[in-house]
Design a protein around this nucleic acid. Structure first.
Lengths: 340, 340
DNA sequence: ATGAAAGCGCTAACAT
DNA sequence: ATGTTAGCGCTTTCAT
């Protein structure tokens, strides 16, 4: 096996200084006016012996690790998993690796994670931030590290973020339910002060209010454990028999909601009409198919990585903060259409 | 902001040699018989100024990066996403970060990815290997790098792997369909020479044969694009009207199969009974609920990471290869139960 | 146009 | 018990 050769080995073998090799390898031959014959010889030899620069040493020297830290709520959540996949593709094409972690929306855990990422000299951060993490994000930014938030943002931290129009999305979905003739519409969501959740609640609330209907909001404590979500949900549905429609605030709650409805033998839309945030296979395939607020996952990922790469390549655009608000699509399916 | 202090800064500040600091920081104070008062002083100071060792420098010196490379087929596939999540938790607890990538089952892409991971000095590898990657895996192993395969293995590469009993799983599922009275049972799968897929086909095949039934296997070219899967599937179902049951070889094919059946208005189990490999929300929530071969995802992840950590911590167990075959559970639901 | 040498921050063999 | 020092492999300034 190759004894893992270094730049100095190849310099010796070719009787050239390692500086020259370094220049050639970094495409600075022209700039340094190195003979094109030498360049060719070096390139050929490097190819031949399969020399690979030690990226650790490179990183230590340059301070760049070519790594992007991706911090999501939960990598196994289909929304975040899709984003992770799309971001991965673009990042690798640009020479970056992704190191990921799940925050569970836990502020302390996230603080630790950020510290770890910093220790690792991660070059850029893509974060779906939990609450109370303002200080740490600000500190990253102050230290000149590129940060892009997505899915939500921190109102009093001046950084770039990619989001969707949550406010309009739930407003619109609620209006749709009202138009269909549903009156007793509940909104079930995670108890959260995150911007996207606040907007979702507000959109629902405003739509109800504008029609003179009474809002009915059920907040559930964020939890990975499904039963901890289903239990209060079960209770809520049982104790609110008048409800004729539910808008679920996230895909996870939506899925749990469907499970509970199945248990209780509540059919959509006859017993309870249903709309959920996020669209994925579970909703499209459900019987009846479930109306969903579809996020433009590809666009989100594209924008996130574009903005980050731009910051990474061009420290200049430091000050001009660019945030993007994307549109969702209300995919109307049978679960929210009143049968006549 | 902290000017990012180094070990030498704190050595100077305390008028101690950096060696001593290094020893203390690495818990070798006792061994080196360093005064416990000094130790305390150093620890306190380090805490106070928030010194964090530069892990890049550490890695360069020690050759260890405390990173695990996770190579899956597609991180957005719920099966792999779940595994990724579980592995993440355990890895972080043990001081390792995860850098992931999706191979798309593409051999060349995977080769590149392995090279990248090597350049990054990843400490250990967790891989769901595509076909034709034997050489590269062997090379990793020969170089003493810990490798654990999962979901499938390479028959002629002597390394550890974590798998499930694919052969029995499809055999058992097929038997179940036969017992229910279905006769014209098709098996739809990805065209693949991967061990798990070969076993799944064989299990089905053997079960059919043992009952004197004719096997009907439809192979689909692996593709991320759903339509490329659904199209041949649609064709297959249309041109095989006699089929009364289908066993889907993966969750992805199963999901696509359900979509096609919905399109064609085929109901399970009356028109076509259905079983799919892998269990997740889509199947449990479907109407009717879909019988699924559930993989013990947690156990798989636990075993994978345990074996890898063991190798990482204890180079001795190098030679004794440990592979684990876990059991699946056939979750029988309405989609495969003959209505009478 | 090419090379010598310093140094990124850390560890560990070798003094003392 | 603590300090000196030589690298790990690379980039880059400064000389030539």
């Amino acid at each position: 096996m190759n004894k893992k050769l270094s730049i100095v080995d190849i310099a010796n073998a070719l009787n050239v200084s390692k500086t020259t090799i370094s220049f050639i390898l970094n495409g600075r031959a022209q700039e340094k006016r190195i003979g094109s014959d030498l360049v060719e010889k070096v390139m050929k030899y490097v190819e031949e012996v399969g020399y690979k620069p030690n990226s650790l040493a490179k990183s230590l020297r340059t301070g760049k690790s070519n790594t992007i830290g991706l911090m999501v709520e939960d990598i196994s959540n289909p929304f975040f998993a899709s984003i992770a996949r799309l971001i991965e593709d673009r990042a690798y094409k640009n020479g970056y690796k992704i190191i990921y972690c799940s925050t569970d929306n836990d502020t302390n855990k996230t603080k630790d994670l950020i510290t770890m990422f910093r220790d690792r000299h991660v070059d850029g951060y893509i974060i779906a931030p939990p609450e109370g993490i303002e200080k740490e994000i600000e500190s990253l930014i102050n230290d000149g590290l590129p940060v892009v938030l997505f899915d939500r943002h921190l109102p009093y931290v001046n950084t770039d973020f990619i989001e969707i129009n949550n406010l309009f999305s739930t407003y619109n979905a609620t209006k749709h339910l009202i138009e269909q003739g549903f009156k007793n519409i509940a909104f079930v969501t995670f108890a959260s002060q995150q911007t996207q959740m606040l907007d979702r609640v507000k959109g629902y609330h405003d739509a109800m209010k504008s029609e003179g209907l009474k809002a009915n909001i059920k907040e559930i404590v964020f939890n990975q454990n499904e039963e901890m979500i289903m239990k209060p949900l079960r209770e809520f549905i049982k104790t609110n028999p008048a409800i004729d429609a539910i808008l679920f605030g996230t895909n996870h709650i939506g899925t749990c909601g469907l499970k509970v409805m199945q248990e209780l033998d509540k059919k959509a839309p006859t017993d309870i009409a249903v709309i959920s945030f996020d669209d994925y296979d579970v909703f499209a395939l459900h019987s009846p198919p479930v109306t969903a607020i579809a996020q433009p996952v590809e666009e989100i990922a594209d924008n996130v990585i574009s903005v980050l790469l731009e910051k990474l390549n061009n420290k200049l655009s430091f000050n001009k903060s660019q945030s993007v608000i994307l549109k969702t699509e209300l995919k109307i399916r049978k679960s929210s259409v009143k049968s006549r």
